[in-house]
Amino acid sequence: MPQTVEQAKQAEPTGLLATAALAWRRIAGQAKKELYSYFYSPIAYVVMVIYLAFAGWFFFSRFFLFGQIDMRMYFGTAPLLLMFLAPAITMRLLSEEVNTGSYEMLMTLPLTTTQMLLGKFLAAFVFLAITIGVTLSYPLTIATLGPLDWGPVIGGYVGLLILGAAYLSIGLFTSAITQNQIVAFILGFAICFLLFLVDKILMLVPGFLVGIFQYLGVEYHTMNFSRGVIDSKDLVYFASILIITFMGTRLVLERRK
């Protein structure tokens, strides 16, 4: 028996490429399991349906009012909905594992904390992309009614995914700092909301800080996306959020060891 199992195992990695392949297998394996869990639990469907219902309502209720072949309405409201959607997707990813104790088993599997987190993040992102992907039916539908400028639409969707990734990373972080899913959700939403609010209170801020606060505001960066512009300044902003929260999550988990 031992020999057969030894043969059944994948060869030990040699070289950089093989090591990277091994790391990817572990990340993908973890992501696969998380995606499986999403589609096995009712929460995911509930979250998805609520998002789609609100997004559809916000979009089409005004679409017919204005009568314009334009997706700007959707890209205006979707970032607000993402503030709810993203933390709802990530809320149980770490909090539940730690709460039930399955985290202990997870961390005795041969994968690093980083690989584990990347796997979970990837699964959340794929789920988010599927949810957002369903709304591709809107531009496809309205394109049949008249000429649609696809540039801003594609830019808008890429922007939504980038924004969603940043929000997911925030949600993953709040899921790491508490064992309670609800608390993780509320904290995640609060941080996303704060980033949304920060450039809405500019008149209360002393003059020399206005620039910083404006830059910190999330809408300042998503505005460009919905116009179909993807600026490196905005990419740096979202990449910073991703990296900072990801490192924060990792730190929280490592400190707990």
Partner: peptide, 27 residues
Amino acid sequence: LSEYNPIYHDMLVFDYLHYIAEMRDIL
């Protein structure tokens, strides 16, 4: 094997073991 042996309650036994096999690098 940890003390309270907590595992994912939503998963089927077969799927869970399959997941472990994948994470444990079995072809």
